[in-house]
């Protein structure tokens, strides 16, 4: 007993120290990037093309490429992911072999290292399907990568919809298709949006899967079959391969961090919206 009394305060100090250490490291990383990056960001930096291999000039074409890669990734993964989530949440029982197979493979997919996605994207999309190093290859690779996140939140959104809606719809003689499109999907929209936003967050953070699928070319892309350099690859290239590229790398890193924080804030806000929806207001509508 005596021993415990002596041990307790030390453990408390230790726990607080760790928390301060983690918070401090985070503040250090973020502070360093803001401090060195904020001077480099201007409207010109965001809109003009990189010059001198990125040492000077801006990141205009890179932002366009990043946007296009994200658009391809989300355009493919959202319908596929929402469809799968609907099947898993609404039309499959927990013991169904097909549902279990899809779930299991999604669990594994969520853990696959991004570099392995890169290898797969290079072998399948770039080589076998003949898309080459292109925005399309990169976007499709990312689509495979964000599917587990999308499906998980879409499923949660659908599970949040009360069963009374389904029973009520059946009692009124609505077909399951009509129930889905008129009741369940509208009610689950906040959850679906959270998934979408989290997926974008994951996709924008990705580098390794894009290096040999969407490629390095920093020009303004003319079509989806052009190679396009994403923001994360731009930071990687400037800091590793270009001496004297650090200033612009800091600027680009700050842009990436700001985009990431904005995406996260949106997801948090949407999640809050959806969680409050059925807790209080729904019952009385």
């Amino acid at each position: 007993m005596k021993q415990e009394i002596i041990k307790s305060p030390i453990s408390t100090i230790l726990v607080w120290l760790v928390a301060v250490l983690v918070t401090g490291t985070f503040a250090w990383i973020l502070g360093d990037i803001i401090f060195h990056g904020v001077g480099g960001i201007s409207w010109e930096f965001l809109t003009t093309a990189p010059e001198d291999a990125g040492r000077s000039g801006g990141i205009g074409p890179i932002l366009v490429s990043t946007g296009l890669i994200l658009a391809v990734a989300m355009g493919v993964s959202v319908p596929l992911g929402v469809g799968t989530a609907i099947l898993l949440a609404e039309f499959t029982s927990a013991t169904n072999w097909f549902g279990r197979f899809v779930r299991r493979s999604l669990d594994i997919l969520a853990g696959v290292p991004s570099i392995v996605f890169g290898l797969f994207g290079n072998a399948f999309f770039a080589k076998t399907l003949g898309l080459g190093f292109s925005i399309l290859s990169g976007g499709l690779t990312l689509a495979c990568m964000v599917l587990p996140i999308l499906i998980r939140s879409a499923e949660e959104g659908l599970r949040g919809v009360p069963d009374e809606l389904r029973l009520g719809a059946a009692a009124l003689g609505l077909s399951r298709t009509a129930t889905l499109f008129h009741l369940l999907l509208p009610a689950a929209i906040p959850g679906l949006l959270v998934g979408l936003v989290l997926g974008i967050g994951r996709a924008i953070a990705e580098t390794a899967a894009l290096v040999f699928t969407s490629g390095y070319v920093a020009r303004m892309p003319q079509s989806l079959l052009d190679s396009g350099r994403s923001l994360s690859i731009h930071i990687f290239d400037l800091s590793m391969n270009i001496s004297g590229g650090d200033t612009n790398a800091y600027g680009s890193a700050l842009v990436l961090v700001i985009l990431f924080l904005m995406i996260n804030a949106t997801a948090a806000w949407l999640a809050h919206q959806s969680s409050s929806k059925y807790n209080d207001s729904y019952q009385f509508r």
Binding site: P79, T84, L87, L119, F120, F124
Partner: peptide, 21 residues
């Protein structure tokens, strides 16, 4: 059936990755 096909595509990605590797 449309949903099943979509889920089948999703579930097949892992297999596709392994096959191509």
């Amino acid at each position: 059936w449309v949903l099943r096909i979509m889920a089948a595509i999703t579930g097949a990605i892992v297999l596709l990755i392994v096959i191509f590797l």
